[in-house]
């Protein structure tokens, strides 16, 4: 299926947010996730299904002022 991942088109076999994180080799404890603009808590990634056209965003710590 085709999703939007951090603003760019991304082809994936992952059916859940958790599987997408695994596929992309993100450390699950150091990233936060959002689906279609809404925060998805870490413990809900495994039960959050992905469908074609979803907007997924994955965030990590960064410098800030």
């Amino acid at each position: 299926m085709l999703i939007e991942m951090n603003g760019t088109q991304h082809k994936t076999q992952a059916t859940t947010l958790q599987r997408l994180c695994d596929e992309l080799e993100f450390d699950p404890l150091v990233v936060a996730t959002a689906l279609n603009g809404d925060f998805i808590p870490r413990e809900e990634r495994g039960i959050t299904g992905l469908t074609n056209g979803d907007r997924v965003e994955i965030f990590a710590p960064m410098q800030g002022g």
Binding site: N6, L24, V31, A32, I58, F59, A60, P61, M62, G64
Partner: peptide, 22 residues
């Protein structure tokens, strides 16, 4: 200290390194 969150590219792990430093 103030910190932020930004989109992370797959496989870069730059966020991980920064968080360890902090």
């Amino acid at each position: 200290v103030t910190v932020s969150l930004r989109r992370e590219s797959a496989g870069t792990k730059s966020g991980h390194a920064f968080w360890t430093l902090i």
